[in-house]
Design a protein around this nucleic acid. Structure first.
Lengths: 159, 159
DNA sequence: CAGTGATACATGCAAATGCATCTATTTTGG
DNA sequence: CCAAAATAGATGCATTTGCATGTATCACTG
């Protein structure tokens, strides 16, 4: 065997940690999505614009985006339909893979992302900055990045 | 004025921290909800059973539950309809408030919660425990609890 | 204690979501 | 090089969700 049996207390600690991470995310997200910014565009749709805006090449494959958001493949496909219908985003065929779709922001999409982003980041700062010291925020950032990195690389089943 | 203007770097740190917290939650949740346990009951419905199981009195008001989950009031109402139709949960009128509904687990609901819970906690431990040391988990737990406490007590708009 | 507003939950209805499946392309194995 | 399997994304359809609103109870004010 490759891993030692976890003790009961180790299991409990992991469970409590996840529970707390999850509930804090719910609490913050609930506030953020009530923000004025998301009257213009639902937060999930904004998140796709944001993800594209952060990408160096400006374009991403749908399956790459899908890894970032908590949506099924088909739901993302239709979410992108909606963004495309609003002229915020453009589909193109991936040059190196005829099955793949590259998604990029239009000028209007960039504009709207920045506009919403400005309000959104203000709401985030208002909620997170006074809750934790800068040192604590850096530590929370480090720990969640480490967790995410582990989960991303772990094999789905027989890890 | 009651708060100093945040510096640009403070805003950026808060935003990066939230982004990382959010993405790590997405990554972990994606794995968890793919677990075998949630073929029996969607994870959101399980979460309501779990919340009830953790409650000392065994019963909670719908609006209390609603604070814990990322669902609109109407969606929770119908989610509870489904749980009730499956005999997992029972509505009763709150004794001290005729408008309120108290929700409690049935025996079948307790049974199913425990059954799913056993698998679920194993999946959590498998995902979280190897990603962070015990010390790091305790720190992550502390920081997310602190964040959640702040957000819960902060006033919605003029905080 | 009547009247007004607020709160708790339910419901009609349109929109979003996920599952299963389909098409098209790419990859793999003989 | 071809057939079979795998992968990317789209689509039909049933389920879930949220918004707006409805009903009932509670809280407050004069």
């Amino acid at each position: 065997m490759t891993t030692a049996a976890p003790t009961s207390s180790a299991v409990r600690l992991a469970a409590e940690t996840w529970e707390s991470l999850f509930r804090s995310q719910v609490a913050v997200m609930r506030r953020l999505q009530a923000g004025q910014a998301f009257k213009k565009l639902p937060i999930k749709e904004y998140d796709v614009l944001f993800t594209l805006s952060r990408c160096p090449t400006g374009k991403l494959r749908l399956n790459e985006i899908n890894d970032h958001v908590l949506l099924s493949q088909s739901s993302l496909s239709r979410l992108v339909d909606r963004l495309e219908k609003r002229g915020l985003v453009e589909r193109s065929i991936a040059p190196d893979d005829g099955r793949g779709i590259l998604l990029g922001l239009t000028a209007a999409g960039q504009e709207l992302q920045k506009e919403i982003g400005r309000e959104h980041i203000r709401d985030i700062a208002e909620l997170v900055a006074p809750a934790l010291t800068a040192e604590e925020q850096r530590e929370l950032l480090r720990l969640t990045e480490k967790l995410q990195a582990f989960v991303a690389h772990k094999q789905p089943r027989e890890g």
